[in-house]
């Protein structure tokens, strides 16, 4: 099996519930990094990191600029900045124009992750009400990465995963209860 360096999860409306459900089930021994980009109101940053860190033994933190991306860590994109992955596997932040009415934009993180990680990347797009992330999935797949969408049947808001399935030719569609197992199976030491 091929080694994965990063799993990037994007989501909008209705995605927080999914994260809260799957995070406790993810093995603390995973040998890759998890990077989470969710659309939300400004100023809720510490709340989101806290909320998620209660549910896992993995180290959860907000991504800092120039921070080295470590395996076994869960990073959250800060609100109101785009989160980019550099080729040396550090984070950059960017306060440029909103993309798809969103900052952070999921497309930006997926696309720069695709550039940096190539085929050692998995991108998962969850529930949401716009198509941010779909172009990023296309880039990730083009660079050899694995792309996943939440099963719209199980999504609170179906538009985002529906667009992913329609336009991005995703590698797999997952129900919420299948996600943690799938993610754990990506690790060489589950």
């Amino acid at each position: 099996m091929r080694k994965i360096d990063a799993l990037v999860i994007g989501g909008s409306a209705g995605s927080l519930d999914v994260l809260l459900k799957i995070l406790p089930e993810i093995s603390p021994n995973i040998d890759f990094s998890i990077i989470i980009v969710v659309h939300r109101k400004q100023g809720m940053d510490s709340l989101l990191s806290d909320l998620l860190s209660y549910r896992t033994e993995l180290k959860v933190k907000e991504a800092d600029e120039k921070e080295k991306i470590l395996k076994g860590h869960v990073y959250i994109a800060p609100s109101d900045y785009h989160l980019l992955i550099e080729k040396d596997f550090t984070f950059s932040l960017d306060y440029s124009e909103k993309i798809n009415y969103s900052r952070p934009s999921i497309d930006v993180t997926f696309q720069t992750a695709a550039d940096a990680y190539g085929d050692r990347l998995v991108c998962l797009l969850l529930s949401g009400s716009n198509a941010d992330g779909v172009n990023g999935l296309i880039s990730a797949k083009k660079n050899g990465g694995i792309t996943l969408a939440q099963d719209p049947e199980s999504a609170q808001v179906t538009y985002m995963p529906e667009q992913a399935i329609l336009r991005a030719n995703v590698s797999a569609v997952l129900k919420i209860e299948e996600m943690a197992n799938y993610i754990n199976s990506l690790s060489l030491n589950p």
């Binding site: 980019l84 550099e86 080729k87 950059s92 960017d94 440029s96 930006v108 696309q111």
Partner: peptide
């Protein structure tokens, strides 16, 4: 300049 951002610009 950080390359990921510059490349996007």
């Amino acid at each position: 300049y950080s390359r990921a951002s510059l490349k996007r610009r």
